[in-house]
């Protein structure tokens, strides 16, 4: 078979005489040859394939327990279907709206405060011509990114302690009463967002600084000749350059709105601030892994993931329509 194909090609037979089927067969033969020739590549990718299959796709199969009454003894397949029972129970529960409010509240607060700051800091760093000072600021502001979330939570708790924390000492020095930051629910979101700002703003500038380095210096020279001030040059040259980066990061942030850093929330949570610190993700952990309501918790988690996916797709759609930059 192979031989005839080769001779046909060599003698330059006019192509139209062959049927579609012939070409399909020929292409398949070539593909098969490539696969057999490169069989070792499949061995190289096998570990990654197995990893994603076992730890990402098997859990996706397991999502069905959200629609079942899962009993560990009978396994996923044997457990009984209950339809949307768990979802309805969740929607009807008294804590449903609190969870939604806290989840969205913390995320949106974080987005509004945390999104512009790296941009401002990057623009400012970009204007600093003193290289040593610039490097020092970068080195110091990147560093908190590497502090573990447990140490971060420990710092927050220690600094904000009502009687021993340094921040409350400062507040008292200014003549005010100490604030029970960790115990008063109304402070929780601010504490969460501000500690995140402290930890991540510096690291967030890297991507913008990379985008800013792509600005053509000639554009600035021309603007200087035309008498543009520093502000004008930032506003009309630098900012337009980084807008695509901003849009992409904005989409990715909105796509994460329901899945914010819940590891930190879990650590900062305590019975007194629960009212404003209980978010969907920590609730799933509590209900599923601590209380053992696997099916119910999986349903809540699935609800969260679906909302998240809808948000991501819509924001991407809006971005594509309005700015021609989008993830896909």
């Amino acid at each position: 078979m192979n031989n005839t194909a080769n001779t046909l090609e060599k003698t330059h037979q006019p192509a139209p005489t062959h049927s579609k089927k012939y070409y399909r067969k020929k292409r398949w033969r070539e593909t098969r040859k490539k696969i057999l020739l490169n069989w070792q590549l499949y061995i190289l990718i096998l570990p990654a394939f197995l990893y994603f299959f076992i730890f990402h796709y098997l859990p996706m199969y397991g999502i069905q327990i959200a629609f079942k009454d899962f009993l560990p003894a009978s396994g996923i397949w044997e457990s009984e279907w209950v339809g949307f029972e768990h979802f309805i129970r969740f929607f009807d529960s008294y804590y449903f709206w609190d969870l939604i409010k806290n989840t969205l509240g913390i995320s949106i607060y974080e987005l509004i405060v945390g999104f512009p700051l790296p941009i401002i800091l990057a623009l400012s760093l970009n204007e600093a011509k003193d290289n040593f000072y610039k490097k020092s600021v970068q080195t110091v502001t990147y560093a908190p990114h590497f502090i573990s979330v447990v140490v971060m939570a420990g710092m927050v708790i220690a600094f904000l302690a009502p009687t021993t924390g340094i921040i409350n000492h400062a507040i008292q020095l200014l003549g005010f009463d100490p604030i029970p930051f960790m115990e008063d629910p109304k402070w929780f979101k601010t504490v969460y967002v501000m500690s995140g700002v402290w930890q991540n703003t510096g690291w967030g500038t890297i991507i913008y600084l990379a985008a800013l380095s792509a600005v053509d210096p000639q554009q600035h020279e021309a603007a200087i000749v035309d008498g543009a001030t520093r502000w004008q040059r930032i506003w009309y040259i630098n900012i337009p350059t980084i807008i695509p980066t901003m849009v992409i990061l904005l989409i990715m942030n909105v796509g994460n709105i329901m899945a914010m850093g819940f590891e930190k929330i879990l650590l900062l949570q305590n019975p007194l601030n629960m009212e404003s610190s209980n978010v969907i993700a920590t609730f799933v952990y509590q209900a599923g892994l601590l209380d053992g309501q696997y099916s119910f918790a999986a349903a809540v988690g699935l609800f969260n993931a679906v909302i998240n996916a809808i948000l991501l797709v819509s924001v991407n759609y809006i971005a594509r329509k309005t700015s021609e930059t989008s993830l896909w």
Binding site: I45, A48, F49, F52, I54, F55, H56, Y57, L58, P59, M60, Y61, G62, I63, I65, I76, G255, A281, V284, Y285, G288, L289, Y294, A297, A298, G301, L302, N304, A305, A309, L312
Partner: peptide
């Protein structure tokens, strides 16, 4: 196929409880 299979997990995951059950 492989790229798609891997990248899809960026956007959609089984979630905490199903992953825990697999482990």
């Amino acid at each position: 196929f492989f790229t798609g299979m891997f990248v899809l997990t960026m956007f959609f995951q089984g979630g905490l409880i199903p992953t825990y059950l697999v482990v």
